[in-house]
């Protein structure tokens, strides 16, 4: 129990530092920034209690926020993701799976896992950019941002999953 907590804590800091120091400086084609830090939330075991998932989401988002000077923005989006995450896993998990598994290509299969990741990221990015811009005046611009960020983050997560396998 304590070991799992400690491992997650280390991963949280590693992902936050990678996000703040490297990925936030990337902006492909002027739009696409990878938001890799949500990977931590996506990999939580299915039987994790929803309370701890929400609290982890809040801490993760807030840690990223403190580095990017946007208090509350990433935290709000990540808490929302933590709230809908169990539902999305349930939607795409194979019917013959065991009760306790960590979502991944090996446990779910490539296509269902990618569907799960894309949907989860769409929820997260939409919340993030809507809160960040707080208006729909540049609606098309907003849409391009959400889609491009989702695609590039999915690509990152997919390649990490393949390397880990």
């Amino acid at each position: 129990m304590l070991f799992v907590f400690f491992r997650r804590f280390c991963w949280l800091w590693i992902l936050v530092l990678i996000q703040a120091l490297i990925l936030n400086n990337i902006q492909l084609f002027g739009y696409a920034t990878p938001f890799l830090y949500v990977y931590l939330l996506l990999k939580f075991n299915v039987d994790t209690s929803r309370y701890s998932l929400l609290l982890w989401g809040f801490c993760l988002g807030l840690a990223v926020d403190i580095f990017t000077n946007t208090p509350g923005v990433n935290a709000a989006a990540t808490v929302l993701l933590a709230f809908v995450c169990p539902f999305l896993v349930w939607l795409f998990s194979p019917s013959d799976s065991s009760d306790n598994f960590s979502p991944g290509i090996r446990s779910m299969g490539t296509i269902p896992f990618l569907k799960y990741v894309v949907l989860a990221l769409l929820v997260h990015q939409t919340a993030l950019f809507v809160i960040l811009t707080f208006s729909f005046t540049h609606f098309f611009d907003l849409l391009i941002r959400i889609v491009s960020c989702t695609l590039i983050t999915t690509l990152c997560i997919w390649s990490i999953e393949n390397v880990k396998r």
Partner: peptide
Amino acid sequence: LEFICLLLLFRF
């Protein structure tokens, strides 16, 4: 938690 986030957002 969402309430806290929004509070932070506007407090800033």
